[in-house]
């Protein structure tokens, strides 16, 4: 028997979404398309073309693409080991591996980033240690490299987990069949494993790329406020220069990039199977 009232169960979420997602979004659009006096304008959107803003946007795109690429390179082999495709498939310790991997996520994101600031400082923990061993000091704090490092460190789990899920869904017999039919391990990987894990990979890419693109806290803390990403520009329009209109306008521009990457991911991941963590 089908309960026709079942759809009302989604009411709490719909109300939630309405208040905390739709209404704020409309407000962003309102501010983005008006000036301080409330008259319609598109100057807040076209402001992205100014040198400072476009530079911040390209730098953010560049750094987040690099971090996404690094995340893929780090996460894919790890996900293969953690999933049942790995050599030690079925061993119980894999569960603990995943557990250990997500353990740092129990601590606040902000605290972890501040901790890295202290660790990476010129006179910080890591350099004191290197100094003790008479090794050259690590000078990456307040550089783009430190920002990429922070992005990779913070968002890597979002790449690993969807990948593990996708890989776990691959029927081991498909791989065995490929081997049976004479495919070597490279061929098996390229023709079987990689295509079948694509949904997980794509959602992993979205989940790393979007937060990296929009972050302002990582670039602030690890970049010493010297490197301005588009996230910092928007944040400062709101908090420092009290120009909410410009901040909203630039947010709308940023949203376009986010929407493009979400559309791309839904095309590849029709069942949304990779997104479940």
């Amino acid at each position: 028997m089908k309960n026709k009232y079942i759809k009302f169960l989604s009411a709490p979420y719909i109300i939630w979404a309405l208040i905390f997602i739709i209404v704020p979004l409309l407000m962003v659009f309102y501010y983005g398309f008006t000036d301080k006096s409330g008259a319609f304008t598109i100057s807040n959107i076209t402001a992205i073309a100014t040198h400072e803003h476009s530079k911040a946007l390209w730098l953010a795109l560049y750094l987040s693409l690099i971090s996404t690429a690094i995340c893929i390179l780090l996460a894919y082999p790890l996900a293969m080991i953690l999933s049942h495709i790995g050599e030690n498939a079925g061993a119980n310790k894999d569960k603990y591996m995943v557990f250990i991997f997500i353990l740092p996520m129990w601590m606040n994101f902000l605290l972890r980033t501040i901790a890295w600031q202290t660790l990476l400082e010129n006179d910080g923990v890591i350099n004191s240690f290197l100094n003790l061993l008479h090794l050259p000091a690590l000078r990456i704090i307040n550089t783009p490299a430190a920002i990429v490092f922070g992005m990779v460190y913070n968002f890597l789990p979002f790449m690993v987990l969807p990948l593990v899920n996708a890989l776990n869904k691959i029927d081991i017999n498909v791989i065995n069949a490929a081997r049976d039919l004479g495919a070597n391990s490279v061929q098996t990987f390229l023709r079987i494993i990689l295509p079948l894990s694509l949904p997980g990979l794509i959602s992993g890419i979205t989940m790393v790329f979007i937060p990296s693109l929009t972050t302002f806290i990582v670039s602030d803390l690890l970049g010493g406020s010297k490197i301005l990403l588009i996230g910092n520009v928007i944040e400062q329009e709101f908090t420092q220069y009290s120009n909410w209109n410009l901040g909203s306008g630039l947010s709308i521009v940023l949203m376009i990039f986010i929407i493009v990457s979400i559309v791309l991911s839904t095309i590849f991941d029709k069942d949304m199977e990779g997104t479940a963590i």
Partner: peptide, 13 residues
């Protein structure tokens, strides 16, 4: 204020 903000943004970027 706006003048200073604009210039400061140029410095920062």
């Amino acid at each position: 204020d706006e003048k200073y903000s604009e210039l400061w943004k140029k410095v920062k970027s």
